[in-house]
Simulated scan of single mutants.
Amino acid sequence: MSTFDLFDGRVDRPPEPIADGAWLLPGFALANASEMLQSISQIALQAPFRHQVTPGGYRMSASMTSCGQLGWVTDRTGYRYSPTDPLTGRPWPDMPGIFDQLARQAADAAGYPHFVPQGCLINRYETGARMSLHQDKDEDRLEAPIVSVSLGAPITFLFGGPNRTDPTARFRLEHGDVVVWGGASRMFFHGVAPLGKRAAHPATGAVRYNLTFRRVR
């Protein structure tokens, strides 16, 4: 099977290499977007979205929740993965089958077969919310890729290099787009610019959801 046998031409934008080991797969999640949005609503009933606080005391502008075996959390004591939701004290909601399937297929399409997502961090961006440049480095399994799914309002994705001061490229992410990175670019800095005042999508209004799938342990 070639790298993009699983990419079946869902949109007229072809897969785009954005760095060594990193790919933008336009529209890869479109066929499953409605079901995934419904699943997000169900997850939020069990584990509500909340604005987490960084160890430095910064309140994150995007609200967050998680599903799967492990959820990513942050507070004044540090960044970590937890099997339970600190807000409810209960295990995180199970990862929906469509989430697991889509994450595995996207990883495979980008050249990372046998990806096993253990957790899905769901970020909810409203007007002005952003994510500053950072590395995903709280995982033990750094050989596994990151799979990032965009749903709803479009946003600008920033992808840099191994150092925070490296130049960053900008990519417009639209409803259903998926970004996968690993290998040589696994530790590259990345983030998103503030969600624009006019950014919207018929399915979500002025809201963008980002689902980030990770193998942790």
Rank of each mutant, 00 (worst) to 15 (best):
P55M: 09
R124S: 07
A44G: 12
T74N: 02
T88H: 03
G68S: 05
Q105M: 14
C120N: 10
M64Q: 14
P113L: 03
G68E: 07
G78V: 08
R130P: 02
A47Q: 11
R59G: 04
L121Q: 13
Q38A: 10
Q101C: 06
L70D: 01
A109Q: 07
Y79T: 12
Y125Q: 01
P96H: 06
G57M: 13
D75Y: 10
G68Y: 07
G57Y: 07
T127F: 06
S41V: 08
Y58D: 04
G78S: 03
G57H: 01
L87Q: 12
A107W: 05
M60W: 00
N123P: 01
P91L: 02
A44H: 09
W72F: 15
D100P: 00
V116M: 09
P55H: 11
G71P: 11
G68D: 05
A109T: 11
L87D: 13
A129Y: 10
D136Y: 08
P93K: 03
Y125M: 12
F49H: 02
G71D: 05
R59E: 02
A106C: 09
R124I: 06
I122T: 11
I122G: 11
Y58G: 05
S82Y: 01
P117R: 08
P113I: 02
H114G: 04
Y81L: 00
S41L: 13
A110L: 13
Q69H: 11
T84Q: 07
M64V: 15
W72E: 06
S41P: 00
T77W: 03
F99T: 09
T65D: 07
D85V: 09
Q101Y: 00
G89V: 14
